[in-house]
Design a protein around this nucleic acid. Structure first.
Length: 438
RNA sequence: GGGGGCGUGGUGUAGUGGUUUAACAUGCGGCCCUGUCAAGGCCGAGAUCGCGGGUUCAAAUCCCGUCGCUCCCGCCA
C-alpha cells in the first residue's frame, strides 16, 4: 500500500493515488456522489460519477459517516471545488470498517453533546481536530521537557507505582490487594526521586502516573493523572529550583509555539506567548498583604494558606501588573507544607514554592530537608511516627546532597497553555471518583 | 465529605400548572431536485419529559425522596 496523505495531494496532480481515512460527509446526488474524506492531515473531496460504475455507486450510498475507508482515484485540480480547489475522481473504494448507523453523536456536527456523554464515546470525541491538536501539543511539550533535562545532565527514572507504605500524608491512597498483604498505588514519586539524590544520580526526572483517592468533584482534579517530576542536587535554596524550572518551562513554550502556534491560534483561538524569564515571585507573607490590598478576603482557617479564589486573584493581579501568566508564590509557612520541605532558620518559613499558571496551581516545589535528624524531627512535629517512614528516613543516613525539585501536573499545564476550561478535555482518558470507563 | 445547578426523542434545546395528540434544530429512513460543497425541498419514524411517591379537577411544569451528571468549596498537581 502506497498511501498518500491528504495534505500532500497537491503534489500529485493528475496522478492516481490511494488515500485512507474516514468518511466525514456524503452528498449522494442523482448523478454524482461527493465524499468528504478526512485523515489526520486534512480533508479532501472525492467525486464519483454514478453511471460510470453503478455497483460502486450503490456501495457508496450505503456507507455511514465515520466509516474507515481506503480510496483510489486520480487527483485533479478543479477551481469549482471550495475545499482546496482539488478533488479525487474515485476509481476504487474499500470499506475497511463500516461505521454503524446512526452514530451515538456526530463528532463534526454543529453542536456537541455534553462532556459526560462525549466521555462515554471518547474515541469518537477524539476524532475532532481540536482533540488531535491537544495531544500533538502534549507530545511536543513532553519532548521539549525531556530535551531540556537531557541537555542539563538529568537521568530519567521510573519509580514503582505499587508501594508498601504511604509516601506522604497517608491520606488519599488507593489500597490494593497484594498477595497476602495490602499495597498502595503511589500518590507521588516524591520519596523515590529523593532516593536518587541519595544514590548520587544528582539530577533526575520522571513522567509517570500518580494516583489520588480523593473524591474531588472539580474541573481540575483526577484520581489518576500524569505527574511531571524532577529533583536536582547541590542546590543552595529553592531559588535554584525555580530558576531552573522557569527556563525549562519557557523552553517548552518555545517548542510548542514554534511547532503548533499557528494551529493553536486557528483551532483554539489562543495566542501562545512564551513566558519571559524570570517569572514574577511573591512571598507568601506578601501575598497575604496583596490580597488584603486588592480586597480579597481569605477564610479565617486559611491564615497560612491560599484558597483557589486567592490563587485566581493573585494570578490576575500579576497578569494585569506584569503581563505574566505565571507567578511563583514562595516561602510558605511550615503549617501548610509537608514535613520534608526545608525550613529556613531565619524566618521559619519553608524554602518552597507553588507555581500558579493563569491562577491555577500547576506545581509545588521546594528545597528538601536532607539532614537526617532535622527531617525526623520535622516528621514528628507533623504528628507522624518514624516507623512507617523509616525506609525514607534512611535515605539520609549515608551522605545525601542538598537538593530540591518539584511536581508538576501535565494536564493542568495543558489547561493553562491552551485555555481549556476543564481537565477532562486535557487528558486522553479521564479518571475520576465516578468515572472508570472507557 | 459540604453546598449550588441541571436531568424533555439518538444528540442539542424550547416549553415552568390546563389552548401539548410535548415543539424546534440536528441526526436517522423514504422520495424529489441538483457538480454538490454548512447543499436544498417534501414526507416519515423516533420522548409515556431520569426514577418513585405526593399535592391538585388537572403535573414535563409544584412538593418530598432517590439516582445520575455538573460546578464550587475542602484537598491538591
Amino acid at each position: 500500500m502506497n498511501r498518500t496523505l491528504i495534505k500532500d495531494l497537491t503534489h500529485h496532480l493528475d496522478e492516481q493515488v490511494t488515500i485512507q481515512g474516514w468518511l466525514q460527509t456524503l452528498r449522494d446526488q442523482k448523478n454524482m456522489q461527493f465524499l468528504i474524506v478526512r485523515d489526520r492531515t486534512g480533508l479532501v473531496q472525492v467525486t464519483h460519477w454514478k453511471k460510470g460504475n453503478p455497483g460502486l455507486a450503490e456501495l457508496i450510498s450505503g456507507v455511514g459517516t465515520e466509516s474507515a475507508l481506503t480510496l483510489t482515484g486520480k487527483v485533479v485540480k478543479n477551481d469549482v471545488v471550495k475545499l482546496g480547489g482539488i478533488e479525487i475522481q474515485l476509481e476504487d473504494l474499500k470499506v475497511e470498517s463500516a461505521a454503524e448507523i446512526p452514530l451515538p453523536f456526530e463528532p463534526f456536527g454543529e453542536y456537541l453533546p455534553e462532556q459526560d456523554f462525549r466521555m462515554d464515546w471518547r474515541y469518537l470525541d477524539l476524532r475532532r481536530e481540536v482533540n488531535q491538536l491537544i495531544f500533538e501539543v502534549q507530545t511536543t511539550a513532553e519532548q521539549a521537557m525531556r530535551e531540556y533535562w537531557l541537555e542539563h545532565n538529568f537521568i530519567e527514572i521510573h519509580s514503582p507505582k505499587i508501594v508498601g507504605a504511604p509516601s506522604e500524608s497517608g491520606a488519599e491512597l488507593f489500597t490494593l490487594p497484594y498477595f497476602e498483604k495490602t499495597a498502595y498505588l503511589a500518590q507521588s514519586p516524591q520519596f523515590y526521586k529523593q532516593m536518587a539524590m541519595a544514590a548520587g544520580f544528582e539530577n533526575v526526572f520522571e513522567i509517570g502516573p500518580v494516583f489520588r483517592a480523593d473524591p474531588s468533584f472539580t474541573s481540575r482534579h483526577m484520581t489518576e493523572f500524569t505527574g511531571v517530576d524532577m529533583e536536582m542536587s547541590w542546590i543552595d535554596s529553592h531559588e535554584d529550583v525555580m530558576a531552573f524550572m522557569e527556563r525549562w518551562l519557557a523552553y517548552t513554550y518555545e517548542k510548542v509555539a514554534g511547532k503548533h502556534g499557528e494551529a493553536i491560534k486557528e483551532t483554539l483561538g489562543v495566542e501562545l506567548e512564551v513566558p519571559s524569564v524570570p517569572f514574577p515571585r511573591i512571598k507568601m507573607a506578601d501575598a497575604h498583604k496583596l490580597l488584603k490590598e486588592i480586597g480579597y478576603k481569605l477564610p479565617p482557617d486559611k491564615l497560612h494558606d491560599l484558597d483557589p479564589g486567592a490563587e485566581r486573584a493573585i494570578g490576575s493581579y500579576f497578569k494585569e501588573k506584569e503581563g505574566h501568566d505565571y507567578v511563583f508564590v514562595t516561602d510558605w509557612p511550615f503549617e501548610a507544607r509537608p514535613f520534608y520541605h526545608m525550613v529556613d532558620p531565619a524566618d521559619r518559613t519553608t524554602r518552597s514554592f507553588d507555581l500558579l499558571g493563569k491562577g491555577l496551581e500547576v506545581s509545588t516545589g521546594a528545597q528538601r530537608e536532607h539532614r537526617y535528624a532535622v527531617l525526623r524531627d520535622q516528621a514528628l512535629a507533623k504528628g507522624l511516627t518514624e516507623e512507617p517512614i523509616q525506609d525514607y528516613l534512611n535515605f539520609f543516613k549515608y551522605g545525601t546532597p542538598p537538593h530540591g525539585g518539584f511536581g508538576f501536573g501535565l494536564s493542568r499545564f495543558l489547561m493553562i497553555l491552551l485555555d481549556l476550561p476543564n481537565i477532562r478535555e486535557a487528558v486522553y482518558i479521564f479518571r475520576g471518583p465516578t468515572r472508570l470507563t472507557p
